[in-house]
Design a protein around this nucleic acid. Structure first.
Lengths: 219, 219
DNA sequence: TAATTTTTTTAGATTAATCTAAATTTTATA
DNA sequence: TATAAAATTTAGATTAATCTAAAAAAATTA
C-alpha cells in the first residue's frame, strides 16, 4: 500500500525530474511539498524502503520504474478529474486544482477507467496538460512558449506553465483561454513585452512573464 | 477541522442512533466501525473535546447538533456519489459502496452542490436510501418490509435494509431490482417464506430473511 | 444483595507523518 | 586547498489513530 503522503511525494519527485536531468534534491522536494528538508529525508527513507525511489544519502533521488508508475497513475487521475470538474460540473479552470488534489487519491482501478470512458478518453486536461493513458503513455503536442514566437507568428493557446488561479483568471480577462487564436504583432526589446491580436481582433499587451508561461501551437 | 476518521465515527454513531432510541454504546460503535472498544473510547474523548458528541463515561454517546450536521453532510455526499457512479459511470448497485466511502471524504461545498445539480437533485440513492438536501432535510417515503405484506398486496421495490453485494446480486437474479413491480401471492406459516409474482409474470419463492431486508411501496 | 459476567475505560505501546534544533556532509569560494 | 556557506541528515519530540492487556464500572443473575 502506498499512502496518500507517499503518493504526493512521488508526484513531487516526478515533477522535479521532468524539468531537471539530475536527481531530485531534498531541498527541491521540500520546496515542492512546502515542508522541511528533515521531513523529506524521513519520507525518502520510507519510499526507498518500499523500492519506489533510488536513494543515496546526500545524493538526491530518482523514481524507480514502480515509483514512476505510481506517479503517472496519480497524474492521470488528477487530470481526468479536472476534466470532469470543468466539463461536467461547470467549474472554471482556475478552481479545480485543490479538488483534483483530493480526488486523485481515491483508490479503484475500475473507477478511473470508467471515468476515462465517461469523459471520452480526453488527451489533455483543462490547462492543456497531457493525460497519460491507462498504460502510462503520454501524448506530446508541439507547442512553444509565447516568448519564443516571432512577429507575424500565429497560433492557438494550448497550455500554461504557471497554473496559479491569478494567472488563469488574467488569461480569461485577456481573452486567452485554451483554444484562443493569437497573432504576435510586435515584441519590444526594451522589456521583451509583446503586442498580440487575440480572438475578436482585440489587441493586448503582454509582459515577458506572461510570455514565459503561455504555450502556443504555431499554425 | 474534522478528520476522516472522526467523520467515520460520527456516521457510525448516526446510524446506530437511527435504530436505537438510547445513546450509542461503545461496543455498538466498535462493532459498526470494526475496531476495538478501546479505540472507540479514545476517539469518543476527541469527539467530545470538539463538541461533536455528548459523552459521559460509561453512559454512551449522542451526537450534538454540529455532530449531526457533519454526519448528515457525509451521508449526503456518500449517496450523491453513489448516484453518480451508477447513473453516469455504469457501476452496478452492489459495486459502489467502497468507492463512495472514499469519495464522501472529499472536502468542498461547491463540489457537492454542483454534483447535486449535475445529477438532477436526486432524492434517493441507488439502494433507495433517501439523500438529505443541502439543509439536511430528509425525504421520507412510505414503504414497508416485504415481510409485513399480506397475500394479494402489490407494490414496487423501493429499497433494501441489507446492503451487502451478495444480497443485491441475489435480488438482481430474482428480478427484484429497485423499481420492480411485485405481488405477494402466498405466505407459508411453516417458515414465513413467501411466493411472489415479479416483473414479467415470473413467480419466485423468497425466504423470511429476504422479506426482512426488502422494502416495498404498496400500491 | 453478593457474585459473576459484560462493558467500558485506562495504561502503556506502536506507527506514520510531521516538526525544530543540532550535527554532519557536500559544495562553493577566498 | 582550507574555510565558509549551503544542503542534508540525525536526534529527539509531537500528534492522530490505532492496538493489547489490565483495571474499573455497570449490568445481570443466582
Amino acid at each position: 500500500m502506498v499512502s496518500q503522503a507517499e503518493e504526493n511525494y512521488l508526484k513531487a519527485i516526478f515533477k522535479i525530474s521532468e524539468k531537471e536531468v539530475k536527481a531530485a534534491s531534498t531541498n527541491a522536494i521540500a520546496a515542492e511539498m512546502q515542508t522541511t528538508a528533515a521531513s523529506v529525508t524521513d519520507m525518502l527513507k520510507r519510499l526507498a524502503e518500499k523500492n519506489l525511489i533510488d536513494y543515496e544519502k546526500y545524493r538526491g533521488v530518482q523514481l524507480t520504474a514502480e515509483g514512476n508508475r505510481v506517479a503517472t497513475v496519480l497524474i492521470r487521475k488528477h487530470r481526468l478529474w479536472e476534466v470532469f470538474l470543468v466539463d461536467h460540473l461547470g467549474f472554471a479552470w482556475d478552481e479545480v486544482h485543490d479538488l483534483a488534489e483530493q480526488l486523485e487519491h481515491v483508490q479503484g482501478n475500475a473507477l478511473i477507467e470508467r471515468l476515462d470512458r465517461f469523459l471520452g478518453h480526453p488527451k489533455f486536461d483543462p490547462h492543456g496538460d497531457p493525460i497519460p493513458d491507462a498504460e502510462g503513455r503520454w501524448t506530446l503536442r508541439p507547442q512553444a512558449l509565447l516568448a519564443t514566437l516571432k512577429p507575424g507568428d500565429r497560433g492557438v493557446v494550448t497550455g500554461v506553465e504557471d497554473h496559479s488561479p491569478a494567472f488563469l483568471q488574467y488569461l480569461d480577462q485577456m481573452g486567452l483561454s485554451l483554444g484562443a487564436e493569437i497573432e504576435l504583432l510586435e515584441r519590444f526589446p526594451y522589456d521583451q513585452s509583446v503586442r498580440v491580436r487575440t480572438q475578436a481582433g482585440r489587441e493586448v499587451s503582454l509582459s515577458e512573464k506572461v510570455g514565459q508561461n503561455l504555450y502556443v501551437k504555431i499554425s
